[in-house]
Every structure is written in C-alpha cells, then in structure tokens.
Design a protein around this nucleic acid. Structure first.
Lengths: 231, 231
DNA sequence: TCCCATTTGTACGTATGTATG
DNA sequence: CCATACATACGTACAAATGGG
C-alpha cells in the first residue's frame, strides 16, 4: 500500500542518479503512465519531494529539481558563515526587484517617517556557488534617491550609495530573530517551510545625522548560514 | 477562485475565535457540508493549516488544533527582547540538570581539549512570567570545578563562578543560527516543531588566558525572543 | 474478541482553469 | 492562437485507525 510513497522514493532515487539541479522531471502524465497510476497519485508523490525541498513546481513548465537530497543536512559540517557586521552591504547581491512604494504602518515606524510618504524598496538576493543563501529587503526613506537607485543592479548597496550619491551610512541598530519562511522566501531561497530563516533587521542612519536613511530586513537560510559577532 | 485558500483563512479565523489547543475541528465531511464544497477541497484547506503548524491530523479521530495562530505573529508587537551580550549570564535562570560527562568530538573541538576528558555540563532554563523562553547548555572544561558547580541552582552562572571560584570569564566568540527545535527543546520550551529556535553559541575564555573555560549553547523561542546587538 | 459507526487516508476518474512557450 | 503541463475542484470507492458497544 501507499503507492505514492514508493513512487516518491523511486523518484528521489532517480533524481540522485540521473538529474541535476535545474533539470525538469518528466511531465506528471508521463510519470503516471510509467508507474501505471493516476496522475493524482504522481502528484501526491511529488508533493513529498516538494515538502522535502527536492523539487519545485512551476505551473505550465514542469517540476524542477532543486538540489541533491544529501545537501540539506549540511549544517553540521563546514558551511557558509556570514559576518553579522557586513549585513546590508554584501558585495555579491543581485537585485530581484525595486520600486517606489507608499510606506505602511510598521515600516513608517522603523524609518521614523510619516505614513503615506513614498519610499524606495529594493529586494536583493545573495547567491553563492549557485545556491541562494539570503534575501534582503531594503527600504530607503528618501524618494529623491529613486532616479539613481533604480539603476542599481548588483553589488553592495551601501557602496553604491557612497559612490553615486555620496551618502555614508552608519549602523544604528541590529535585531536578530528566526522565523518559518514566508511563501516568497521559500520561492527565492529554494527551501520549504521546514527550514527556518534567520532574520536580521538593521536601521542605518546618515552619518552625522539622526535620521534613519535605510531599514533592511535580511532572511538567511538557517541550514546554510551561521552568523558570527566580532568582539 | 482558489476556494481552498478562502476556506483555510476562514478556518484559521475560526480557530482563533472558537477553538483552544487540543480541540478537534469538526469532521471534514461536516466542514464540506458547511462550505458547500467537496471533502477534498476541505482537505486541501486543512493541508495549509497543517503546513503552518496550526493543526495536526489524527487518522480515525480528527484534526486537532495545536495552538492559537496569533502566537506566531506575536513578534511584531511588544515582546521580550534579549540583549545578545548578556547571553550566558542571564540572572533569572533555573538549573534543570547538571552532571560530569566525558567530552564528545564536537564539544572537544569547541573547548579545545582532548577527547575523553571529563567536563561539567549544566542545563538551565530561563522562564519569565511563567513562560519558558530559553534553554542553555553550559559546558565547562575543568572538572575540578564540579564539586562547587554542582551546588549551582539558579541565577547567573558567570556571577556564581566569579563569587565562588573567583573566575572571570571573557567572551571569545559568538555564533548565531536558527533551527527547528529538538524533541528535548520542544519539551522544555513548550513549543512544537513548527516554531524555530534561535541558537547562540558562545565560547568564553578565562580572563588573562587563551584557554576556553566555557562553551554554551542557548536556544530561544523565536516567537517570543528577539535579540539586539549593541553598537 | 468482534463488530460497527465515525473519521481520516489513499487511489481512482473527469473536467476545467491557468501559466508557459 | 495553440499545445503542453501544472493547478484546482468535483465525484466515487475503499482502506485504515479510533473508540464504543
């Protein structure tokens, strides 16, 4: 009994042997044909793989292999370690999206500005060795920076600000927490709900001023990243 | 469209209003009747709640409510905030257990001592307002401290060391990560597997020496604790 | 022990919606 | 606009676990 578990195990074995991250599985109908079951049974089997973070569904395209299954118990060994102080100025970040937006309640509090005011939102993703590690949402209080910031594509945001707008940012506060990932974080970081994310919120002031220029929230994969504090 | 999401949200709201942890939801057939949908659609809706850790399925019995959903959005409001620098010397800790033990591989590395050597292990629990917040495992490298340390019952371990053994400890390194909780942590912190824990590992040296005197691992409930770093 | 009603779990089938290329 | 492939929703049937008689 429990055909879907057998199929799930078979698919996992297939993935390990014949597939590489980024490959697509055969269509569900084809798998149903091969295993001589209904398509729903194949879907149930793939549900297991999705829940274990091996596969990602893409409507209209197919089911993509994410990574080799042995990778997701990686933490105990040698793993990527970030430095807490360099958060927000990571050099190897790619911009996922950027826009002008109206501030909502909590962001207004963090940035210490009035509601409804426009701010700049930039979302970046840090990927190393082809694996997404960390997604950062930057919120910048001054909409006049938008014409320049909209051209920011990659690298260190703080360095970009220094070079293009001659702005020096200074860390005002850092707060650390952990969470189950949001759906968006699951997608961007290629994880499932069972992998917690570490969340770091920072507030940065303009040097020589008390005004908060930037508020950032970074979420890192807890299975791949550990932060160190310098003493 | 996406009826199951609407039903899922409705059920979550119902749970918040009318159910307590340990209660069972109405049978799936009954919910299907109420929402005028097929039972599978109700199941799909409950799948969402299960994935978010609100509900547990029990075959033959029913679907049990695990906890109130607002608990895991508690983080944004006024909540307990710890200071990262005071970790390991929290004044309001109770000793759960203490013992002499032989070091295992990883602990030997952290303490920088030979395997098989005896060390002191003390486990403490920080409970405030009747709610367990944080469990800390202290590992001390010198077994000669055991006759004194075994009398440690509560308060700040670092203060106890200073007063009874005249030892001054100095933070050497701090590392932060996040994890799904272990079974023991679930028990001590009164949470389930869906609430991540933040983990802080510290190494402390004897002042004026390079030797690691203490290695500690603290695990805090991520739904109740946020850490701040002093700049 | 056995039976039975209830309730969840699995598997099948069919149809239609939606995203991709 | 079309074919392909995944997403959602309906329906039916039976298996498996639970708890009571």
């Amino acid at each position: 009994m429990r055909i879907y578990l057998k199929i799930s195990r078979q698919l996992e074995s297939d993935i390990r042997q014949y597939f590489r991250p980024g490959d697509y599985l055969p269509p569900e109908m084809q798998l149903a044909e091969r295993f001589q079951v209904n398509r729903h049974t194949v879907r149930r089997a793939i549900d297991e793989l999705v829940a274990n973070g091996l596969v990602q569904r893409h409507q209209g395209k197919g089911n993509m292999v994410l990574r080799q299954p042995h990778l997701y118990r990686l933490h105990d060994g040698a793993h990527f370690t970030g430095n807490l102080l360099e958060q927000g100025s990571l050099p190897s970040c790619q911009v996922v999206g950027s826009r002008l937006m109206a501030v909502t309640g909590k962001l207004a509090v963090e940035l210490n500005i009035e509601p409804e005011q426009k701010i700049v939102h930039i979302q970046t993703l840090r990927t190393t060795e082809g694996i997404p590690r960390c997604v950062i949402n930057h919120y910048l209080s001054d909409p006049e920076w938008w014409p320049v910031l909209k051209h920011f594509r990659q690298g260190s945001l703080h360095e970009f600000l220094r070079k293009t707008l001659e702005l020096e940012l200074k860390r005002e506060s850092t707060r650390l927490s952990a969470r189950a990932p949001s759906n968006e974080e699951c997608r961007l970081l290629q994880i499932n709900k069972s992998v917690p994310v570490m969340r770091i919120k920072t507030r940065n002031q303009l040097k020589g001023s008390n005004q908060i220029a930037e508020f950032s929230v970074s979420s890192s994969r807890s299975d791949l990243i550990e932060y160190v504090v310098e003493h």
